[in-house]
């Protein structure tokens, strides 16, 4: 779980909190790319989308 920080400004929520990006790695899902090793991060960065439909 991401810890919600709301210390100095009681009215604001989420400072320092990033987005969760779920990706598939070797068949498993991983909750965030933070714990990916360097090679897999690079691979994920390079992934291009595949056009759907026959061409």
């Amino acid at each position: 779980m991401t810890e919600m920080r709301n210390h100095n400004e009681e009215k604001n929520i989420g400072e320092g909190v990033g987005f969760e990006r779920i990706r598939r790695i070797t068949g498993y899902l991983v909750g965030t790319t933070d714990r990916w090793n360097n090679a897999k991060r690079a691979e994920e960065r390079d992934r291009v989308k595949h056009t759907i439909g026959r061409q």
Binding site: R47, V48, T51
Partner: peptide, 22 residues
């Protein structure tokens, strides 16, 4: 020249290709 070798027999992730052809 990249940080990874392509997974098994996959067409490289960086290569533009249609889903059908892949």
């Amino acid at each position: 020249d990249r940080e990874y070798y392509t997974n098994s027999f996959h067409v490289p992730v960086y290569y533009p290709i249609s889903a059908y052809r892949k």
